[in-house]
Nucleic acid binder design. Sequence first.
DNA 1: TTGTAAGCGTTATCAT
DNA 2: ATGATAACGCTTACAA
Lengths: 351, 351
Amino acid sequence: MDREIPKLAKKIKLADVAEAVGVSAITVSRVLRKPELVSESVRLRVTEAVARLGYVPDPAARALASARTDVLGVLIPSVTNNVFSSVLRGIYNRVEGLPFNIQLGNTRYSVLEEERLLDVFLRQRPSGLIVSGIDQSARSKALLRQADCPIVQIMEIGDDPVDMMVGLSHRDAAGAAIRHLQARGYRRIAFLGARMDPRTRSRLVGYEQVMKEIGLLDERLIVTTPRASTVTLGCELLIELLSRTTEVDAVFCNNDDLAIGVLFECQRRRISVPDDFGICGFNDLEMMAVANPPLTSVRTNREEMGRRAIEMLIARIAGEPIDEPVVDLGFEIVARHSTAGLRPREARRRP
Amino acid sequence: MDREIPKLAKKIKLADVAEAVGVSAITVSRVLRKPELVSESVRLRVTEAVARLGYVPDPAARALASARTDVLGVLIPSVTNNVFSSVLRGIYNRVEGLPFNIQLGNTRYSVLEEERLLDVFLRQRPSGLIVSGIDQSARSKALLRQADCPIVQIMEIGDDPVDMMVGLSHRDAAGAAIRHLQARGYRRIAFLGARMDPRTRSRLVGYEQVMKEIGLLDERLIVTTPRASTVTLGCELLIELLSRTTEVDAVFCNNDDLAIGVLFECQRRRISVPDDFGICGFNDLEMMAVANPPLTSVRTNREEMGRRAIEMLIARIAGEPIDEPVVDLGFEIVARHSTAGLRPREARRRP
DNA sequence: TTGTAAGCGTTATCAT
DNA sequence: ATGATAACGCTTACAA
């Protein structure tokens, strides 16, 4: 690593600051971490010297000596997925200005990678940890339970938190979407699902429950794939659905990308939305409101989820008691024109 | 942090393994890092003991003793932006299986935050660093030049790499897009730009150069905003543009989100694409190919960019010489129906 | 309120 | 090929 730029002046350490001020190293350390334990005069002189010399603590030395870091670990299954981007935004926004650093791990929907990263992260003795989902492997759960830092599971909620949880019931959210479609007069309501991760499966369960309740469940209306969801896939799944049966008058898409794809494909096939066909997405991405027509979706509070997760962590780090270890952030059906209801005269798509 | 689960058995350290095998700690350390320096018999016994005891090195102790970590730092301005998600995917894919860990920093398009994170990251003595863009502040550049690890600037290319670069010329890419529109018969070509980060500005320069060259530059056709780009903003910018002048027959959007918004707004206004109005985006997101009509865009090799950046880092870490410190990944105009050309009869939009 | 001494777990250096 | 010893820079525990 030879660069033409001269090396930095030798790195300033605690001892250098201590010497400059004429106190011991531990006093400088205290000024930095627990200033209230140090007399004002000393504190001021130390603070001044720290600034003047440009001292900054070595995180590795700190971690080694204190068995603690200022890292908040965050494990998510995808960096590409909009849903997690939003959560991350909430996390980064909330942590700004706090003395913590986010360490992001990308599990890529792989159980093994999640276990590996959990291992890597925990070994660094983070101040807190955020993990996605509630369906960790047995090994992951064991690691989490042994961790000596607060942990928040996000995205979903359930009965058996490793420590804390903040999320929503995807089953209920999907169920509510189906009831919305039903209330608007749609009957033959299909389910399009991609990726089929635990949350998608929960939504499918919610769909099936409600469809069964209202006596409309038909397996042919359920089209799923393990492939990652994309707009293109939305088109393809609609085509697959219509090839199975033309007796469909609405579709609940497991997420908004699929819904946009379905919309484009409907436009191409001159299927009128919502007159002949209703479309409901999930997540309520920004673009849903300005599509043509605007698309109904299920709003989830993803930024809020990230924010709350951080707040729960820092509360626990500060030793505050947590009244609610499991926080349900709920959801909201954002009804737009795409599910305004079938055309009065005849509730059947044109071929 | 009181949990009901019993604490882990006391953490195994180097000395424990050494004792179990009957060698010294440093020998165990060597087996882990430079096995070729240790005799086979000892190596085998040590390896066995490491596995049996479940020993794993403490990263903080390692970092403190060796002044080096296995961290590859990555600084990006946004976790929400599709462009960076793709780059990240390339990075994570390429680094999989290698003995490095990605540490992600989110600068949120803030110079100050970039400087702060650079500071935080460099203090951890990473094995390598990837930073976004080539327009770092003077202070950031100074920090980078003093770093004693390899560094890759990604997204753009320029004359003065801090160390290495991999990206493309956004000016040329935008210029090529404009020439494409011109070749298809469009004349009154507008520019819609959001965020106005350095790359967006480069694209604007490319647009202006080519428009001037072909004698078509008209300031009224340039609509920009500092707001982050969204599909909604695409609609709004088109509305703003049309309120300034109806003498427009095509639009180059600074990115695909804007282009999708423009498309939806055109659909609403019954502006026929491409007959009355051409649309070209930038980045070639997956959805462009299946929009209605499919939208022309400029493909950039974002995953490849991430991959190459990692490869350049590990080559340098391995001490290999770099033949090309600045890698131009180029771009490609992906022509689709949205720029098929104006309707033969009359090259004017309907009101 | 401040300081002393003893690690924290690993690796660099120098011996053997 | 292997080992003894001294860092690495900080914090904990205890003392004064």
